[in-house]
Design a protein around this nucleic acid. Structure first.
Lengths: 232, 232
DNA sequence: ATCTAATCAGCGGTAAATAT
DNA sequence: ATATTTACCGCTGATTAGAT
């Protein structure tokens, strides 16, 4: 009901009143490269300048003389918005790639650990048998180990869709993991301090031989587990 | 409430009759709910209607009568663009959450397995000691069992040079590893290589304290790998 | 010529500070 | 306490530039 949004468009000219930012034709005016550059320079130091700072900016910068204060304000607003959107998207992509690669690595390591566990259990059983055949061995404290269950991982983590993503991005990870250095970035749900995890790869050449180190870390309150691998 | 879209603008000299698609007074006119709804209905079936289809749309839909063809076109363009952006962002967030959850599970599983390995190795060493002190062992095969792959791996790869590199790298790494994740930076002069990366882990217990070493990077035939791990 | 991506700008809603 | 001001943000229509 109602709505009746009244007169829609009728053509009308600029009515040359205040709207200086529109040309007589009503077209937009893109800011010149110099203007944008000047604005960006200020933005780099201060993305959210006060109205005082903006006025001062107009005064001290002749290039911006023909831009109205309000437009300066709007420009900064839009600039913040754009950066937020772009950064968010980019950040999410990077983080996702990292998480995917890390998941893959963790799954492989888990697989490796499982195999090792079974082998150790096997050896354990063998030696236990050896000790039993020898009458001198009197102690028996090895049962609890063999009884540990060992298979929950496989079924639990196989969302097929994610796997395909994981595999795809892993290859990218592998391609990047050679000949790269590391730089730290903040992970999303993880506050600085405990709980953060990361992968790294460092390449460096020492005495003519190129050495590469890859690693994975997790920092939690009580344990710092770090894995580093070096090879040449 | 009732919207009350009363345009507040100044008079419009209304002369120009310039391009009609101009917002009348240079003012901003949002389409009504019905109009948007109608457009959305069409968009649901066909997000990219031809110009013919758009003209036909205007004819058959009286609500859109006062919207010009060009505006219809623009509406669909913006509609596509923004849906794309939103969908991407949403998808990334969802994937991110799932990956994070999966990651946590994997880390827990990993930790559990590593503890188990530590315990098994500990018991293994204990029994091995028992067997050595007991001279009753008649067969020589027990040593082959003790010389498990992971054990030999640890002994075999300790070229001091690599160790120093690894330690140095580790300290540098730990100094940065405070609640952060890593970002890849391309290093000049080093091409991404097709080296395959694998994972292995070694656990070793000495006097009650379990030290764990895990490594990734399975290498090409001739390469060696050494790993260092700190776990307390 | 149309599409996509980026950009400019207007409007409504909201929160915080200030004025009445 | 209520009303006004101010700035900010999200959304949206419109424009431009570049690619197809």
């Amino acid at each position: 009901m109602a709505m009746q949004v009244a007169p829609v468009h009728r053509e009308s000219s600029s009515s040359g009143s205040i709207t200086k930012h529109l040309t007589d034709n009503g077209k937009y005016v893109r800011y010149t490269a110099e203007q944008v550059e000047a604005l960006e320079r200020v933005y780099a130091e201060c993305p959210k300048p006060s109205s005082l700072r903006r006025q001062q900016l107009i005064r001290e910068c002749p290039i911006l003389a023909d831009i109205e204060p309000k437009q300066i304000k709007v420009w900064f607003q839009n600039r913040r918005c754009r950066e937020k959107q772009r950064k968010e998207s980019s950040r999410l992509q990077i983080v996702n790639r990292k998480l995917t690669a890390m998941n893959k690595l963790l799954m492989e390591e888990n697989d490796r650990l499982q195999k090792q566990v079974s082998q150790l259990v096997c050896e354990n059983g063998f030696m236990q048998q050896q000790l039993q055949t020898a009458p001198t061995a009197t102690d028996a404290r090895c049962e609890s180990v063999v009884a540990t269950p060992q298979h929950s991982l496989r079924d639990a983590n196989n969302p097929a869709g994610l796997l395909s993503i994981a595999e795809e991005t892993l290859s990218e990870f592998l391609s990047k993991a050679t000949g790269t250095a590391v730089e730290w970035v903040q992970m999303p749900g993880m506050k600085p301090g405990p709980d953060s995890i990361g992968i790294f790869s460092i390449s460096q050449s020492c005495s003519g031989v190129a050495a590469r180190a890859c690693g994975l870390v997790s920092l939690e309150p009580n344990k710092v587990s770090t894995l580093i691998s070096v090879n040449n």
